[in-house]
Simulated assay, not measured.
Amino acid sequence: MPEGPTIVVFKKRIEKFEGKKVSESGGYNNPFAEEITGKKLISVETYGKYLLLDFKDLLITVHFGLFGSFLINEFKKVNASFSLFFGDDFINFYVVRIKKLEKYYQFDQEINVLSDQYQSKKTQKLLLEKYAEKNIGDVLLNQDVFPGLGNIIRNEVLFLSKIHPESQVNKIPAKKIKELLEIIKEFSKASIELIEQKIWKSSSSVYKKKEWENQEVVEYVASKIKRKTYVVEKVQKIY
């Protein structure tokens, strides 16, 4: 499933259609085709794992799930689930889920690490108030706290901050939590360029790796969230 930085890369590819009118909308999983047709695409934004298409009085959210993708001015052999035509140009989305919001929904950009409005103190407060007794490795995949974070970012930032994923949130020193949040922000932003260069996964430190600097990377499946976890036991401390 695409993580937040990948959705930003998608946005950068699609935003060239901003300001253009939709001459036709279609797709087998698009109940809003008539409403979208004739409207101008005001802006393309992102929130977590969602692509946001703003048609002024109509907001369409696009979620790519596990297998979603899109092509610009190209077709796959299968039918598009959602499509937008701008005269001779078009975007075909495949295996995506779309939703409609009548009024511009106020996504909380203050907890979105890829937003200029991000406030790490708000995330830290949320962690301690609602998830204090949870394991940090589990909470990192909670989209209500960390929109856009997926398993790659989860594993990498915990390693970079030297925190074991089984650490309980309220036992991690405040200074260490602050450091983790800063690493999440910086890693997420840096990932955008690596994704564009198609070297994001291959440049990882521990994700799907067997060793790091001659030390074993232990792989296991986290019991509650059922996600593959990669840990360097001698580096990452359990709190």
Score class of each variant (00 low, 15 high):
V62C: 02
F10A: 05
L141W: 05
I199F: 06
I98A: 01
I172P: 06
I111F: 06
V206R: 04
G65M: 00
Q168M: 15
T229E: 01
M1D: 14
W212T: 06
P31R: 08
K237C: 09
Y28T: 13
E179V: 08
A80R: 00
K99L: 11
A174I: 13
F10M: 05
E179K: 13
E133M: 11
Y118R: 00
Q168R: 15
V78H: 09
F55V: 04
L149S: 10
S23G: 04
F93N: 02
K224N: 13
V62M: 02
K121V: 13
P5Q: 00
K76Y: 11
V206F: 04
L127W: 00
K12T: 13
A132G: 08
I183D: 02
K237A: 09
E35V: 02
S188T: 11
V218S: 15
L126W: 11
E74M: 04
M1V: 11
S120R: 13
N92T: 05
K76I: 04
K77N: 15
Q119K: 15
Q117F: 13
V217M: 03
D54T: 03
K76H: 11
K12N: 15
L114D: 03
F187N: 10
G65R: 00
N214C: 13
K209T: 04
E179H: 12
N151M: 06
F75R: 14
I184E: 03
H63I: 07
E102W: 06
K198F: 07
N112I: 07
S223Q: 14
L41V: 07
S43K: 12
N214F: 14
Y105N: 14
T46M: 07
F55K: 00
K100P: 07
K210W: 11
F70L: 02
L84M: 04
W212E: 11
F90M: 00
V95W: 15
L53W: 08
N30I: 01
F55A: 01
I98T: 08
L84W: 00
